[in-house]
Write a protein that binds this DNA or RNA. Sequence first.
DNA 1: ATTCTAAAGTCAACGTGGTTGACATGAGGC
DNA 2: GCCTCATGTCAACCACGTTGACTTTAGAAT
Lengths: 155, 155
Amino acid sequence: MAKAPQAAGLHRASLTKLHDLDAALELMYYGWRGMTLEADAYLAKQGLSRPHHRILYVVARRPDIAIGALIEILGISKQALNRPLNLLVERKLVTSKRSPEQHRSKLLRLTEAGRRIEQRASDHERKVLREAFDRVGASGAAGWVGVMEAIADSN
Amino acid sequence: MAKAPQAAGLHRASLTKLHDLDAALELMYYGWRGMTLEADAYLAKQGLSRPHHRILYVVARRPDIAIGALIEILGISKQALNRPLNLLVERKLVTSKRSPEQHRSKLLRLTEAGRRIEQRASDHERKVLREAFDRVGASGAAGWVGVMEAIADSN
DNA sequence: ATTCTAAAGTCAACGTGGTTGACATGAGGC
DNA sequence: GCCTCATGTCAACCACGTTGACTTTAGAAT
């Protein structure tokens, strides 16, 4: 976990389009990168990366989530979760306690520091989105949401 | 290189939203996954994965591209390109020839088989986009493009 | 012709994000 | 006391990326 992501892909375009939807396809790629670029750079400065952010993001929105539920949501294996989560606990960004009644599962929460980092990383992403939405106005934003929902639900 | 990507993330949502843009942020995540899911599954069946597809995609749109230019566009190192590209050449999906006059650089092209796989993989992605665009109509699609361009160009 | 340089190829070491499989621990249910 | 479930941990593996250090190839320059 280190290293800021590099330039990559340069400027989009420069490729001739073979199909009418190639431009849209590339926009999805560069859009994803555009949204995450600053956030990844910020996380890298903190010695963290995307998987850590995903954990922080989910735990922030589901305080007292158990490990098993977190695994489900992230869609990764228990072992894959282990390392990044332990790092977050070591760094005191996440606390892991057994609850009073339900001792069987551990409950995860963000510490103040964890909340701060989650917020800042996500803020970078939200900032990019906000500026884009502002640029195109409410109707454009609504269109974007409609398309993305259709894509997200296409599986 | 093998294994189809697994479910992961389940259904989107189920997370409480801390900010007004959280929904959009998650839409970007699930949108990217939604677009690439089928394509990745298809590629996995061919024993290929995303990096191979990126190579095929670029070479298809820039026939006779040199290795150096490909590295630039993909934004990865020469060594990182080497393995997947060699696999593609071994499988006769890509040909690599020195040109008559410019012997210094090799020129890459897709074979018929390479073109076919590139097309099918990209078709899966374009299909998802097309259905989404059809669902929201031309104005929604235009909004989507506007937002994505703003995001892509935000760096 | 020899030397210099640019493009490409190759090797080794490493980091990180995943995967399985196997096994240990901790705590509630019966 | 045992069973079971949630969690933790170890080892092996794979894919994808990185640097660094070289070699090979072939055009360019003196």
